[in-house]
Simulated scan of single mutants.
Amino acid sequence: METIISSLDAHKHLRATMTACSWRAGWRSLLIRAYEDPAEAEEFVTPATRDHLIVLVTGGSCDVEVRYRNGWQHAHSEPGHIGMTAPGQAATLRWRGNTTHSTLQLHLPGATIERVAREFRRKGPAAPTLPSGLGSSDPLVSQLMLSLSAAFQESAPDLYAQTAGEMLAAHLLVRYGRYGEPHYRNASDGRLRKVEDFMRENLASAVSLEDLAREAGVSRFHLLRLYKKLYGQTPLKRLTFLRMEEAKSLLKDRNETIPTVAARCGYENPSHFATAFRRVVGVTPRSYRR
């Protein structure tokens, strides 16, 4: 069983110099700190906490390796990249770069995640589970962390942190914790389940609104109304979202070329795929793979 420490003591186990801390500014709803990290660090362990840790690179770059329970992960970290460590997980780290680099580290309380998850309970698993990993990009998380860093240094009240923390927990649960799946309640929604299954089975094929309406057994206009009500978006935008989720999964396999990934996600033209991917995910397919 992992040894659990307080997030307040996490800095004692790092190979970095803390330069700012929200706790000292009176915030208690979440903890965010700024660090300056050396150019290189030999292998060391950061113990588990009860909070979800998010690390945002804000300056410099390095080649970093981290080991969780499922083995080593490798990435080239640069500004805008994030890494996450789930509650209850320790991590073994090492990195190498040419210069020092800076990071923001946010500890989101597990209690906050649990509280928000209860609001999603009918749309997600019984217990919230968030992933550990590094080297990804999430523009919303990055911008929110930068805003929180500026806010506590400008003496914003803890209410700011509390509100931002709940919003961040909701985003993490929906995007990474499988809490974004729809909850079907009636016959009309059951038709959408059929459409969802059809979309997932035909991500590589050309799919029109007419095809989806035919699958649901309703008119195109009625299908648009149903999707707007349940998802807040059109069926084709939902299809694009599902394709990008599939693309993110495929891009993790370096044996898959980007044109092949594009084709498997319904795009004959790789440049059209890259444009759509960047619009939905926030970075290019090549950057996401790195």
Rank of each mutant, 00 (worst) to 15 (best):
L30T: 13
L30D: 05
L31Q: 11
L31S: 10
R33C: 13
Y35C: 06
Y35P: 10
D37F: 07
A39F: 00
E40C: 14
E42M: 04
E43A: 12
F44Q: 13
V45I: 12
V45W: 02
V45K: 15
P47Y: 02
A48Q: 03
R50C: 09
H52E: 10
H52D: 03
I54G: 05
I54P: 08
V55C: 06
V55L: 07
L56T: 04
V57M: 09
V57R: 02
T58R: 08
G60S: 07
S61L: 03
C62I: 02
V64D: 01
R67M: 14
Y68T: 09
Y68A: 12
Y68W: 14
R69I: 04
R69C: 05
N70S: 10
W72Y: 05
H74T: 12
H74V: 11
S77K: 09
E78A: 11
P79N: 05
H81I: 14
H81G: 08
G83V: 00
M84V: 06
M84A: 11
G88V: 08
G88F: 08
A91Y: 01
T92H: 07
R94Y: 06
R94E: 02
R96K: 15
G97N: 09
T99F: 08
S102V: 01
L104M: 13
Q105R: 11
H107K: 02
L108F: 01
G110V: 06
G110L: 11
E114I: 12
V116P: 10
A117D: 00
A117R: 04
R118F: 07
F120E: 10
